[in-house]
């Protein structure tokens, strides 16, 4: 009908008909609407729906409450004294959390509290169906916040080759000081044993190495379980949760018996693409490089850095001990 308006245009433009064509094409194509309460669109597994509290990790440091731009986090608590536990030990004071509440009527879901929490006590959960008819009920108290932990996903698996979180051990792996060139032996650095060694830790392996190996083994277990779950047809979220649980079990358990890592040449390892040296070998490489650097007269810090790099190169694509 508006084809007349085309007459004004010198070109007899087809714009109007083109527009009609577009709307017609859209009309006959499928609507994108998801009928929410009846069907639920698949959310990304790490959607930020609600903030969950892991109460036992909270130390009442108040960082979240202070950083919250909306001041919607309420923390109350009190100090308790713990009597001295034995001869010569001090009595200690510690914090007890009485109330932790988030007012979701105020919250703007910026997630700063989750970011800022130094003790992993706050997490994002993908739950979002907690609308209320009464605004006061949007203040979730501790029980409810803890309840959201049910659906909190474990942290994502690390990227290949990425270092896990720093785990502070009493005996950091420091290459033997320059004054100890004889330290070519496999286990020279256990000067301060610190906490009793974890079960299954083989002699000749530092605490940090052991932790790293366990983590690597755990990552393998996790990937395997994840793939199995996906193959079984589980949802990605469920597969991820189950594989995480499997990893945790694997990490808690002692290392697989395959560990010992004799100081021989690295196995060719045909199954995995990147065949790196075993951790023990790599540590040996590190020490060697360190000594060379020191011998060249490098600054100890530089020597440490270069030796570490050499070790990482040696271990690149580290396969788990069980692999």
């Amino acid at each position: 009908m508006n084809d007349e308006s085309k007459l004004k245009k010198a070109t007899f433009g087809t714009g109007l008909l083109k527009g009609l064509g577009i709307t017609m094409r859209h009309m006959v194509s499928k609507a994108v609407t998801v009928q929410y309460p009846d069907e639920i669109a698949p959310l990304p597994p790490r959607s930020r729906g609600v903030i969950a509290l892991k109460e036992e990790n909270c130390t009442m440091c108040m960082l979240c409450a202070r950083e919250c731009p909306d001041w919607c986090i309420y923390i109350e608590g009190h100090k308790e004294r713990r009597e001295s536990r034995g001869e010569g030990k001090r009595a200690k004071a510690f914090n007890v959390l009485d109330r932790f509440a988030i007012d979701y009527a105020l919250c703007m879901y910026c997630g700063i509290c989750v970011e800022v929490c130094p003790y992993d006590a706050l997490f994002w959960s993908p739950e979002f169906e907690y609308a209320e008819g009464d605004i006061t009920r949007l203040t979730h108290e501790m029980e409810r916040l803890e309840d959201w932990m049910r659906t909190v996903l474990p942290p994502s698996p690390l990227d290949d080759g990425a270092k896990g979180p720093e785990i502070k051990s009493a005996a950091p792996v420091v290459p033997a000081p320059a004054a100890a060139p004889a330290a070519a032996a496999p286990a020279p650095v256990e000067t301060a044993p610190g906490p009793p060694p974890a079960a299954g830790r083989p002699a000749g392996m530092s605490e940090a190495e052991f932790v790293e190996q366990r983590a690597a083994a755990g990552r393998l277990v996790r990937q395997k379980v994840y793939e199995e779950e996906i193959a079984k047809g589980s949802e990605p979220r469920i597969a991820e949760a189950r594989s995480k649980a499997a990893e945790m079990r694997a990490r808690k358990a002692t290392l697989p018996e395959t560990e010992p890592a004799p100081p021989v040449t690295p196995a060719p390892a045909p199954s995995r693409p990147a065949a790196g040296m075993s951790a023990a070998d790599a540590a040996a490489v590190r020490r060697k490089v360190y000594e060379e650097e020191i011998a060249k007269g490098s600054d100890p810090r530089i020597a440490e850095a270069r030796s570490k790099a050499a070790e990482l190169r040696a271990r690149k694509g580290t396969k788990g001990p069980g692999g």
Binding site: T23, M24, H26, M27, V28, S29, K30, A31, V32, T33, Q35
Partner: peptide, 13 residues
């Protein structure tokens, strides 16, 4: 309905 589908929606359901 027509307007909704032209906008890739479902309209009243």
């Amino acid at each position: 309905k027509v307007m909704a589908h032209m906008q890739h929606r479902l309209g009243p359901m």
